[in-house]
Design a binder for these strands. Structure first.
Ligand SMILES: NC(=O)c1ccc[n+]([C@@H]2O[C@H](COP(=O)([O-])OP(=O)(O)OC[C@H]3O[C@@H](n4cnc5c(N)ncnc54)[C@H](O)[C@@H]3O)[C@@H](O)[C@H]2O)c1
Ligand SMILES: NC(=O)c1ccc[n+]([C@@H]2O[C@H](COP(=O)([O-])OP(=O)(O)OC[C@H]3O[C@@H](n4cnc5c(N)ncnc54)[C@H](O)[C@@H]3O)[C@@H](O)[C@H]2O)c1
Lengths: 256, 256
DNA sequence: TCGACTTTGTGCATCCGTTCACAAGCGGTA
DNA sequence: TACCGCTTGTGAACGGATGCACAAAGTCGA
């Protein structure tokens, strides 16, 4: 039922600083996991699952059960001992902590290979991150709609970002342009930036930057390959490549 | 220097530990930063810079100088006290530790929006990660070259991966297909996977998975916005640092 | 050759995050 | 109602990463 526990939610709650204070104390790593739990829980909810134990959820999310419980404890105690967690309740609390109760308008800058993919991606709007503006410096692109949104010229970035209340700026330009684009976004009041360009951005303290660096990811994988090769070498001999040792596909399945 | 090492490292090989042993001891977080240092150093080398101090390099990489020196110490002592580091020397040692002395063949699975962008991206081959195979289940795509490489059918994945010695598999398929694609890659002997699908993959112990989840990144940004808003709210009653009122372009933005 | 100066490399204290282990709390059952 | 088994929530131990501070080690100029 939707109306359970009369969680009026209208912040008319007993002005507990506890909630607000709590948010500050959540470790960054835990925040990232909460986002994963949220996705898993949403999937469960869609399949009609109403309750889940920390053991089940932790397996579905690929983490240790104790860690999951600790993560959830950062946002409060919403489980029932002996039973588990109510999926919907957990979803709504995680959404609240992650600030997903309101939409976050996204702007993509640099509509090249990657920018096109991002603009066309349908996964963001549904999760509260509508892409509302696209920018590029290329005159041939300006005016053309991509993913339903017309590309604006980079010079209009301030006006458009303010008008559409952009809160997250995504940088998908070539590396040399990234810092300049970043500065423009910051000037336009954008305080969150997701950067795909392999460049270290300099920003004021009040701006949050996260980077996605595929080359770095691959190099980390490369490191592990090398390490593994070394280990194998020092132990010599080896176990066969083992096509499918154990581990099957499955994983757990729906349970209505 | 081999002056003093911590105590036993639980190694099975008592002789000539040197770099091989060292690699195992490098913290994961440091490995990620080494990749960033490498990129910065490569850029410096291209511009003719031959020497650099920990202070300069750390600033360019956006980290603390002490942390940078500690990171470098994990791979050995290649600096010169009173002077700094030789750029080329550092580059070659980092490349060696990251296993970049040999190429790592990459296969991309799922040639949709994202797959196209990845296949067309020119930044990988130059860094030792040549994309040598593309796969999709869509018959209309099979045979068509993308970024110069013809798309293969997913059913040929084992044969093609073995033939081209693919060492990294990139998953860019819709979420429902991700686990199955992952299993196929593993069966084909691929031990490193970079996953873009918002799904938790189940893999054997000998396979390394890294994920890139844009929705999670955005939610982390959202969390910080919310946290910042809370802080502002709890202080709003009175003190307002500086003379600007939140919204809009605040006064700063200076950047050297 | 020598001494002053610069910068590295690292021991150590600290902090943050992970894991363990178990008491507390709850639903179900007799 | 009283008991029993299950699962949560968390105190505490642990381990890894971070940052500081400084001795060691080298360069450079006189
Ligand atoms: N394509 C990928 O798969 C991929 C992978 C990893 C990293 N990246 C990084 O993402 C970024 C974009 O990659 P891409 O392949 O889409 O490049 P791209 O060259 O296809 O597109 C870049 C776009 O940015 C535009 N642009 C250039 N300067 C601009 C400016 N000052 N303001 C606004 N727009 C500007 C260009 O007109 C172009 O449309 C690059 O930094 C690249 O290194 C891309
Ligand atoms: N496009 C983005 O910017 C973006 C952003 C974040 C996450 N993602 C994720 O990346 C993945 C790909 O996104 P997209 O926008 O490119 O999707 P898309 O639908 O454009 O492309 C998916 C491609 O995978 C192919 N495919 C489907 N099943 C397959 C199978 N079993 N084997 C091989 N190929 C198969 C399809 O034929 C299609 O060409 C999705 O999981 C998406 O959630 C994409």
């Amino acid at each position: 039922m939707a109306s359970q526990r009369g969680e009026g939610e209208t912040t008319t709650t007993p002005a507990e600083p506890a909630d607000r204070e709590r948010a500050r104390a959540i470790p960054e790593a835990a925040v990232a996991r909460l986002a994963v739990y949220l996705r898993v829980l949403s999937g469960m909810a869609d399949q009609g699952v109403t309750a889940v134990s920390s053991e089940e959820l932790s397996q579905a999310a690929g983490v240790n059960a104790a860690k999951l419980r600790k993560d959830l404890s950062y946002i409060g105690s919403y489980g029932t001992r002996g039973v588990g967690y109510d999926v919907e309740v957990l979803v709504s609390h995680i959404e609240r902590i992650l600030g997903l109760t309101r939409n976050h308008s996204v702007a993509v800058v640099g509509i090249g290979n990657l920018g096109h993919a991002l603009a066309n991606y349908g996964g963001f709007p549904g999760r509260g991150f509508p892409v509302t503006a696209l920018f590029d410096v290329d005159a041939d692109l300006v005016g053309i709609p991509v993913g339903g949104i017309p590309v604006n010229h980079i010079d209009d970035i301030t006006a458009v970002c303010l008008e559409r209340e952009v809160s997250i700026g995504v940088i998908a330009t070539p590396p040399p342009a990234a810092q300049s684009v970043c500065d423009r976004l910051v000037s336009a009041g954008v305080q969150c930036i997701l950067n795909f360009a392999p460049v270290v951005l300099q920003v004021p303290d009040n701006v949050e930057v996260r980077k996605v660096d595929l080359a770095v990811e691959m190099q980390i994988l490369s490191f592990h390959v090398a390490r593994r090769a070394d280990e194998a070498a020092s132990v010599s001999a080896g176990i066969g490549p083992a096509g499918n040792n154990g581990l099957g596909v499955d994983g757990m399945v729906i349970r209505p």
